[in-house]
Design a protein around this nucleic acid. Structure first.
Lengths: 219, 219
DNA sequence: AACGTACATATTGCATGCAGTGAATGCAAT
DNA sequence: ATTGCATTCACTGCATGCAATATGTACGTT
């Protein structure tokens, strides 16, 4: 989440715990999140649970219900809008990072890291290692966003990814698509590295558009 | 918070109250926000105050301090990054709304509303009514974002505007700039109405770029 | 007089208590 | 058997209490 580090408070740990449950599919959209039960399971009182759920409410991860909160569900159309928003964010990130690269603001080691991550992804795809693929895919996109050096973009991107992750296990199952994605990563990395701003943006947006297509087909 | 809910709970009212104080310049960046004092002033207990501040923390409006939270301050560079992010968001909003207009998804009455708001802004500028100008300016931009029909964009935009508002009374003082802005609004409205997607985006981005320039000069 | 230390104070973070309210359940009537 | 209604129950939302801790102050030392 946003900017909250340092404090290892209970609220934080509850947030992380619930977050983890979101990722491993413990919950489904619409499931209620009773604070007493969570408090009990996590060994804290209701207050930090309440705080954590409040933050999630502010972030849109959970939605207010008649009583308490429920896991925020996104219907198909909402997912498409979210993907579309993400498309713009990724395009902007690529644009920013490419322009920073063009201006010599990015250290060579970073380019190497990006290429390595892209390679890792390609390997994972070849080996049909879904877990590794998902991880390096996430990392690839995060790297670009981080390198854009715009914390506001990074924050918005994190939120978008979070909500996407809650509602769908980002699908790299389709091997054809996965290979295609790997290729696209390479091209994006090249465009960014060479400081080709407009191409970087175009390729990134196109990449997310394709991902949206895949999502749309399998959902 | 993003999508506000019907509940008129204490947490909500505290949030709004503090929010109002941000807008009318009661606080400066770095000011501490003691929860006991706020609770006393607002006639509630510390719990809802705590909740509200927690939400604001999640949104980045306040920052964690050694003790409690402080009003999040943005230095000049951060403001530039925020403006730049806003530029992208506004461009995206204009693009989306223009494309919806092109596809006949927008009711004629909305175009009229946009034009009216632009006109209101122009009048306020002519009369040097800063308050009215600020309000109709905000409304103009919000209208476009709302019409884009993407709640995720709307949320991000709201956050960005919020943080901009906290750190600077959006400056329409400069009469030259204000008049220029009024003209740009007109052109943007036209581009959107006629469904000219790329022009709408370009003009919107350019508009924010100019605003950034003004900010940069006077800060 | 300046600096460091120790104590007092202010303030947070978490736990718990209490009351209000929506939701589920059981009973009765058709 | 099903539907309507009343009662009960679970759960939330807000208030308050308590312990931990950072901050400010005063005092003693050099």
């Amino acid at each position: 989440m946003g900017t909250d580090q340092g404090t290892a408070g209970s609220t934080r740990s509850v947030y992380d715990a619930v977050w983890a449950r979101f990722l491993d599919g413990t919950y489904s959209s619409g499931d209620r999140l009773p604070e007493a039960a969570l408090a009990d399971e996590l060994g804290v009182s209701r207050t930090p649970v309440r705080e954590a759920l409040g933050r999630m409410l502010a972030e849109g991860l959970v939605a207010p219900a008649a009583r308490g909160v429920v896991v925020a569900g996104l219907d198909h159309d909402a997912m498409l809008r979210l993907f579309d928003f993400r498309r713009d964010l990724e395009g902007y990130a690529a644009e920013l990072t490419a322009s920073r690269a063009r201006d010599g603001l990015i250290a060579p080691v970073w380019f190497q890291g990006l290429k390595d991550t892209a390679a890792e992804f390609a390997v994972a795809v070849d080996q049909s290692d879904a877990t590794a693929a998902t991880r390096s895919n996430m990392q690839f996109h995060e790297l670009i966003v981080e390198a854009s050096d715009n914390e506001f973009l990074a924050d918005a991107h994190r939120r978008a990814i979070a909500r996407l992750a809650v509602s769908t296990a980002l699908n790299l199952e389709d091997p054809t698509w996965a290979h295609q994605a790997a290729e696209q990563h390479d091209r994006i990395a090249t465009a960014i590295t060479t400081g080709d701003v407009s191409t970087a943006r175009a390729l990134s947006e196109s990449h997310i558009r394709d991902a949206t297509q895949i999502f749309s087909k399998t959902n």
